[in-house]
Design a protein around this nucleic acid. Structure first.
Lengths: 190, 190, 190, 190
DNA sequence: AATGAATGAGTCTTCATTCAT
DNA sequence: AATGAATGAAGACTCATTCAT
């Protein structure tokens, strides 16, 4: 019998990668990175430990790929029409997109916040996080500066913190946290 | 040297317990619970691993005692004169006390938040967390209800989330997060 | 394309076997048998791991075949015209042939000596090694006995040891070991 | 009960270190470094795997300590009264001391030679080996130069190779290799 | 003839915990 | 009260080998 074609193999590989990726994301989110063993990931994915290493160089690389993969989405949200003149609708839209991702990629947020508090691991991601952080700050500061707010930087950091507070409370209690209402209250703060 | 009296021994015991407690808190905060080994704690405290087990049943119990110990302080902040008629000054005072603890017990907060994202560990504390959470909510809901706010529960949860957002951003960037200004903006939201 | 004829297939087979054989020899020599993985061999040979198992039953069999293959050459050097009357020229010729092989099949020697010090692996080859060893000894002992040397066996073993000493130092430092001069000094010892 | 005194502990530690050291040396010598697992060492030493790591940072450090420990002896043999005027007796004495060590520390030699052929591992020791090699060469070259030998360097390298050849054949066949007679033949070469 | 995804036993290493002293 | 040697289960990772295609 002839070997599988390259495209067949590629399909198999992508499926497996996706599978491992999803399982790992969920486990990292619920148990934390350090407390999630490669064995757990393999068991939950229904594969052998060895196979994970066919697709990911190490547990750490798996984490990095997951975090970076998710980050792309967030970086994508940062676009504004004119950096010098950020419109309120753009901010609102940015918030709403974030809320949408928060609902959809609930696990990703959970994992992301949990990493925030594990300095050793977090250092792996520092650069990207900084990039995103600066992107958000630029937009917000520009927005408040244009409107003559006395301390645009303070206001910007406050707003960012408020958003993350909402996110943290939401992912800690998805069932009953009033996310949409909180979003409205957040918009009022702009 | 004459043998020590029982009370002297008790003093020594308490000092050692405090020492272990402090060292462990700092390490849990900076490295995370899972990444802090008992050996590290013993080494940093200048004692043997065995001694730690004289005072604490296990690493997990050590964590539990640390978290619980810190919690007492927060529960102490919940007092209001009249539950039915919460005054604005009381809320402000409550916030300020929290800010004070946030500055002082920075490590505790850091550790606490990191646990928030590790359900297994967090479950150990669920009851106490719930108790505190309900206490805060009662006060805030009562406050807003009295003032005729349409959705006091929503407003209360929002406010709580905002506070935690500030806390999270502060402990992630103690150097430059504008904590006091954020406190003022928070007060304005009341 | 028309299907290949059986003999064409056989040529392909032989080429692949040779390829694997050569790559493996080099890797075994430079990294050691235990530290050379089948994956490395396959990658360097530009084939799949599976294919290697089409031609060689196992990594161990691959080693055995390599060692045995090389051995044939040495056994071929053992011929003398008359076992009872070994001439000096024949010994010199034998030494020179060995030197020639040492230069040419440098990797083989390197691998061979490294195996010498791993009894488990070496046991696989014991019989052949013994056969060669006895062949060399027979010739040398006969040579020295005929010349009335008091302890021909001792002299023979010494000479063999000297040759291997030269070989070992040569393969440990190909760049600067004075192989040809050492050969001359060795001849003087005869 | 009071804890063991520091000196009691030191005795325990030294015994265990010695035990692990000896077992590891023997196993490295007979199976090779790569093929000797930490489990094997622990099993043969009658201890747990974990304990090995109380005394040695890693398998590699264990190897390094063993090799370096043995090396001290060899470096100790290099002393000559006057580097400019090396006496024949000194060379003979040096050879005899080496022969003595070869007999006594048979395993060490075996391990040493096996490492010689595992480049990855050998690199760890390169510096020390070089130091020893240069020491030996200095003495031999000086010896031959003083005596007006045409190519003292060649003669020195040859002699060194001869000694190692004897060593290699001896450790490959302790039972019947004529070590003492070979020593005499070696002396004749001086 | 040829592929490489997949496995699982085995590797080195760490660490919470126990226990004799 | 105090020590640290000792354990063993578990962790991340590797690799010879198999097998469906």
């Amino acid at each position: 019998m002839s070997p599988r074609t390259p495209s067949q193999l590629e399909v198999i590989r992508q499926q497996k990668i996706r599978l491992i990726y999803d399982v790992a994301l969920e486990l990292f989110a619920t148990h934390g990175y350090a407390s999630t063993s490669v064995s757990m990931i393999a068991r939950r994915a229904g594969i052998s430990k060895g196979l994970m290493y066919n697709y990911f160089e190490s547990k750490e690389e798996l984490l990095r790929r997951i975090v970076m993969g998710g980050f792309q989405q967030f970086l994508g949200l940062l676009k504004v029409e004119n950096e010098r003149n950020v419109k309120k609708e753009e901010i609102i839209n940015f918030i709403d997109e974030n809320i949408r991702l928060l609902k959809r990629d609930y696990n990703y947020y959970k994992m992301y916040f949990s990493l925030t508090f594990q300095p050793e691991v977090f250092n792996l991601l520092k650069e990207e996080v900084m990039q995103y952080f600066m992107g958000v700050m630029n937009i917000l500061v520009s927005y408040y500066a244009k409107r003559g707010v006395p301390s645009p930087l303070v206001k910007a950091r406050f707003l960012f913190a408020v958003f993350d507070g909402i996110a943290v409370h939401y992912i800690s209690d998805v069932e009953s946290f009033p996310l949409d209402e909180s979003r409205d209250l957040l918009i009022e703060l702009l």
